[in-house]
Design a protein around this nucleic acid. Sequence first.
RNA 1: GAGGUUGUAGCUCAGUUGGUUAGAGCGCCAGAUUGUGGUUCUGGAGGUCGCGGGUUCGAGACCCGUCUCCCUCCCCA
Length: 456
Amino acid sequence: MSKPSLARGTRDFGPEQMAKRTFIFDTIRRAFQRYGFLPLETPAFENLSVLMGKYGEEGDQLLFKILNSGDFSGKLTDPDWNEGYKALTGKISEKGLRYDLTVPFARYVVMNRGTLAMPFKRYQIQPVWRADRPQKGRYREFYQCDADVVGTDSLLCEAEIVMLLHDILPALGIEDFTIKINNRKILTGIADMIGAHGMEGPLCVAIDKLDKIGKEKVEEELIQRGFTSESILKLEPVFSLSDGTAPFKELKNWLSGSEIAMKGIDELETVWKLVKTLGLENARIQFDVTLARGLSYYTGAIFEVKANNVQIGSISGGGRYDNLTGTFGVPGISGVGISLGVDRIYDVMEELNLFPESRKTSTQVMISNFDEEAFLYGLSVLPKLRNAGINAEIYPDSVKLKKQLDYADRKNIPFVILIGSDEIQSGLLTLKNMKSGEQQKRNASDIIALLTAERS
RNA sequence: GAGGUUGUAGCUCAGUUGGUUAGAGCGCCAGAUUGUGGUUCUGGAGGUCGCGGGUUCGAGACCCGUCUCCCUCCCCA
């Protein structure tokens, strides 16, 4: 016999936590549906050929791989063992747990492109798995809520994502948040402008840390990553720009020589305009050149949402990807989407005390079980309550009333029906209000009417 | 994957330089109360001290390994 334990980075969710999580899921799902997204679910695991190479090298490493079933090592030869673990992995594992919902979605779109009404809008709420080291707000199994549109380049999609976030987060009580937006094309243009063509990857990683470690440290890191001091000098405008409120003009002057950067700026300006046209006042959107995060497949807009005044990383992220389906052989389908992290939103709401006070119980009334005769009588009342739409249960054992009331108390059941010989004889049951302690004698249909009224 | 930190009852934690039988609060169970929960009082149960090895006459404490929690880096929801 061994002590039970949870796998690293995983958690159980008890009834109380589930009530809160369900509240989040329901709020998000309702919003997704209101914007015309349709539901989709995909398998927990996929063939590794689908997942590998989509998230960069780092991502490949964080994929949970599933060992082939059966005699996975039978066909291995001595050279296989000496080729290193990466080559070996390919020979003993063909499947992996999904790392996000976007790539499985792209796979689905490619496999079903003939039958989908394009542009196709889908939402998907499922867990994903990542084999990284757990930390605050970071788990190895967590839920993502994704909404994506594929099959259109329209920047309305980006604007709608902004709207969607402005619907969902306040509905959850998160009023103080910032949607940071950047565009991959601008980053590409910057890399070109400073004479570091194709190096936007490392550039992004370093720049992204600006607000965390400061300008000097960023410059140090850039040198370490192989940028020339000349390039870094040319990068100067980025630092002065980063906290401006309407930096597009400056940015245009600086990057006028880069066609691709100008296109990126233009795209962002359009998004800003569309958001305004959609009637959103005081949008919590902020352009941030230093926002460089994003999985390797992003090509246009990049989003990241931060809840302010909390010690938790971003609660949402997303962006536009032009060639994700291309990696499955079907190019030319552009997509854009957003992903909300339920587990982090939960942590934020917990930290800010934002969960509405909800009834911790689902049972509204419990019938006591005094003795055999009363039990049988109770069984005849129970279905009447349930048929009337009242959540009801009967205590299953004939034990001391004290114990039964204690159970009701602990389960936060607001009403108890006491049935004994008196009640059976008169047909008037004792309805006890557990909060006030008061009791009244009523017949079954009166009780149903009372409880129904109580519920609303 | 690199570095740091933590682990003692169901929970939160004490436990002296290594020394008898490892403690407290809360919770749990039972009784006070044979038809009445929360409050109170009384009593009780509950520990391979994360796991494995080592040092020692003797280890919860010291050493090594390992797992886990939390944190920093990397990266991300």
